[in-house]
Amino acid sequence: MLLISCPNCGPRDETEFHYGGQAHVAYPESPNDLTDREWAEYLFYRENTKGTFAERWVHSTGCRQWFNMLRDTVTYEIHSIYGMGQPRPELQASAASAGASKSDPTQPGEFTQSGDFGQASAPGLAPGATAPTATTPISSEGV
């Protein structure tokens, strides 16, 4: 089971979450102008990355907030958790060499109503959690 650090609630079991598939898929700007092929792309075609994948999750039985996650689809290691509307973070080649520069969200609290997230440290960590940077694996539990 994955251990997922909800940005608002902290580390919780995977069973509290629901999966939302690929992140950063925007609704078409001009839906009426799309060809059938473009509609098919929007509706049915998603990346199916083998490796680091940007995806959405929602904490259904917790704060009910959506967030984004960078996760490895082979090892299931979670590399980063970041807010809706935030760009996909760049992953350092080595997590150990990652600086804190990537950990500072440009828009703290953007995806949470509570507003207390984002001041402590990295996105993807519960308020008050001690912590690695956003590029450090937060959880890598599998079965």
């Binding site: 995977e14 999966y19 995806e55 299931y76 599998g142």
Partner: peptide
């Protein structure tokens, strides 16, 4: 398992 995966393994709660 709900998530995308190539790991040939899943989460135990499904079992």
């Amino acid at each position: 398992d709900s998530y995308n995966g190539y790991g040939q393994r899943g989460s135990f709660h499904v079992i």
